[in-house]
């Protein structure tokens, strides 16, 4: 499945999951869908039939509230059967609303922000010390950069020259209550991240060709962690959800779900997918 079809499929699955479970955070999931789709379609060396394959690349979703995007990607790629997605958010289900390592293909459970990057740095350090070729990719939210633990981890990753680490920041510019700018100003974010020792690039987080090309060019600088400040749109792909902070919380009702799925079908029809 190519990355665009995978992203379209993921969006449809994610919408259906949150609608059925009446769960939050669909806007955050749609925001990262294109990045996750490119990673699983074209970049990550993983084996759906053997999720614990020792030489796999490791992907950590630090913004665990966007877990439906990753569950959808994993199911679509064959890590577990698609029908299992219907258990998302159900009582005693492994597919909890925030991403769970009890699901095949998920490396690490998150939900409290600021945990994914330190964990990823530990993995990258282990890989370096054992001369492993696999990479670590970690995806953070922009609001998550409020957490001091991320800046601690950046210091360490740069000091130890962990260029086997790719950090993606989902820069959709909205966080829990309002915009990132109105919450705690992060700008000039790229300059700050460069000052912390990362090789920083700003990309369009929905441009599959660009994401693919840049992820295939790692590391961007020898001896430095690569960090993509990925400009995205919260709610991307569903017209009435885009850039609306309310979709951090709201779950689509049946009519809204139908409209959203119709938009995705129309997108597929355009490229004959």
């Amino acid at each position: 499945m190519n990355s665009r079809l995978l992203a379209n499929t993921m969006r449809g699955l994610a919408l259906q999951m949150v609608a059925r479970a009446r769960a939050s955070h669909i806007g955050s999931a749609l925001s990262i869908t294109d990045m996750v789709a490119v990673l699983y379609a074209d970049i990550l060396q993983v084996d759906p039939g053997n999720p614990q394959w020792t030489e796999r690349d490791r992907f950590i979703l630090s913004k665990g509230h966007a877990g439906v995007a990753l569950y959808a990607a994993l199911a679509a790629q064959g890590f577990f059967p698609l029908p299992e997605l219907r258990f998302y958010g159900q009582d005693f289900s492994d597919l909890m609303n925030h991403i769970s390592h009890k699901v095949h293909g998920v490396e690490f459970s998150t939900g409290s922000l600021g945990h994914g990057l330190p964990f990823a740095v530990g993995k990258a350090l282990a890989a370096k010390k054992q001369n492993k070729r696999w990479r670590v990719v970690v995806l953070l939210s922009d609001g998550e950069m409020d957490e001091g633990s991320n800046w601690e981890a950046l210091l360490f990753a740069a000091h130890h020259r962990l260029d086997n680490l790719l950090i993606l920041i989902d820069y959709n510019k909205l966080q829990s209550l309002t915009t990132v700018a109105a919450t705690l100003a992060l700008e000039p974010l790229a300059d700050k991240l460069r000052a912390f020792g990362a090789a920083v690039e700003e990309v369009d987080g929905h441009d599959h060709a660009l994401l693919r090309a840049r992820c295939k060019a790692l590391p961007w600088q020898d001896g430095k962690p690569s960090l993509s400040k990925a400009h995205t749109i919260k709610g991307k792909g569903v017209s009435f959800m885009e850039n609306q902070v309310v979709w951090h919380y709201r779950s689509p009702n049946p009519e809204q779900l139908s409209q959203a799925l119709a938009e995705l079908a129309a997108e597929r029809a355009v490229w004959g997918g």
Binding site: H115, L117, P118, G122, L125, A126, S149, A153
Partner: peptide, 11 residues
């Protein structure tokens, strides 16, 4: 915080 998270990652 980073120390403990990294330790978990290494473990």
């Amino acid at each position: 915080q980073n120390m403990m998270g990294m330790a978990a990652g290494m473990a």
